[in-house]
Design a protein around this nucleic acid. Structure first.
Length: 343
DNA sequence: AAACTTGACAACCGCATCGAT
DNA sequence: GATCGATGCGGTTGTCAAGTT
């Protein structure tokens, strides 16, 4: 039994959307909201496939869409996330507010993919600098992207001739020692647990690198809510982890918090975790050290920001099989001088 | 100036996944 | 558990503009 086509293609408009069609779609969605894409064209009076309407809305018409001008920061984040996640564009887009998966995919295919590829090529050339090599002739776009002086449109100066031919965006060797994820509110004094009195035993692991998660549940990755804490009963004795802080002290290994084998970085990135509001207060009160936190900070910002803390390296522990450690480490520590990470 | 090439990106398409029944 | 509809996702294509020869 074959699947019915999402819509009859006969008599439907195809190709670029007109301003009139856009207006109809916008007006309809403003009135009736998103969803029901299959029936939307008929109800709205559009001669378009429902899929097409959805795509048009999600990628171009909906509010808060950023168009063009992908910043160097965004570019860097895309490269890192792609290194980590591969072609999971929606996942990557989810970490870039206002950007769509389609835009990022296109940007990657036309810019970054080649850029990264060229960078790898250059690295190979520099490491294997002996022997005759076939000369590489990058395309016009390649030369432009990499500021190759041979580019006709480039602004090459004589001094550039000795410079590295590629100006590829390099990942910063940012050392992350602690990743804070939003998590359920810890029990407070008088509410079942006293963190201040017994913080070592209350936490599922202590912050000296000895992780004891045997009795812990993993936190609720409450997709779709920015405040998963509200779903957790504070007195639920089973929510040990829910009652504990989900900060992972990983010196020097940058890592996302991983609680069990089922939770990997990709899961975390795919969640709607945000840095919790209450953490600064809590951490300050328990003297657990600096926690840079902001309620508006997205996890991706945190994972890849300069704000990640650098402390001592003394308590590196293998964290978890679920962590895509190798890939993650290579993402964050691309520099040759950062070999210690993989030790 | 025309022909050709290349890049950018909007849009399409097929398959996968999820939830309701 | 099977089926089906709705939606999401990622690969690919089509088209236009800009650049090159």
């Amino acid at each position: 039994m074959g699947r019915n086509p999402c819509c009859s293609k006969e008599g439907l408009n195809r190709g670029a959307w007109t301003a009139v069609e856009d207006k109809i779609l916008i007006d309809y969605i403003k009135t009736h909201g998103e969803g029901r894409w299959r029936n939307l064209p008929q109800k709205a009076g559009l001669k378009r496939c429902g899929k097409s309407c959805r795509l048009r809305w999600l990628n171009y018409l909906r509010p808060n869409i950023k168009r063009g001008n992908i910043s160097p920061d965004e570019e860097e984040l895309i490269i890192r996330l792609h290194k980590l996640l591969g072609n999971r564009w929606s996942l990557i887009a989810g970490r870039l507010p206002g950007r769509t998966d389609n835009e990022i995919k296109n940007y990657w295919n036309t810019n970054l993919g080649k850029k990264v590829q060229l960078d790898r090529h250059h690295q190979q050339n520099t490491t294997n600098s002996t022997g005759n090599k076939k000369q590489y002739h990058p395309s016009r776009k390649f030369r432009k992207l990499t500021n190759d002086p041979s580019s006709s449109g480039g602004s090459a100066s004589p001094s550039n001739k000795t410079a590295t031919p590629t100006q590829v965006v390099r990942t910063k060797a940012t050392k992350c020692t602690r990743v804070i994820l939003n998590h359920p509110q810890p029990h407070r004094i008088g509410q079942g647990r006293d963190l201040h009195a017994d913080k070592e035993s209350t936490l599922p692991y202590n912050l000296k690198g000895n992780y004891d998660i045997s009795n812990c549940e993993k936190p609720v990755l409450a997709a779709g809510t920015s405040n998963p804490t509200s779903d957790i009963g504070q007195d639920d004795p089973n929510n040990i982890l829910a009652a504990a802080d989900f900060a992972v002290n990983l010196n020097p290994a940058a890592a996302a918090a991983v609680v069990d084998d089922e939770l990997c970085l990709a899961d975390i990135l795919n969640s709607d975790y945000q840095v919790s509001d209450f953490l600064p207060e809590y951490y300050n009160s328990t003297n657990y050290g600096d926690v840079q936190s902001s309620s508006s900070t997205d996890l991706s910002d945190l994972l890849f920001s300069e704000e990640m803390l650098v402390q001592d390296r003394s308590d590196v522990r293998a964290l978890n099989a679920g962590l895509e450690f190798e890939s993650f480490s290579s993402v964050l520590f691309d520099g040759d001088e950062e070999n210690w990470l993989t030790d």
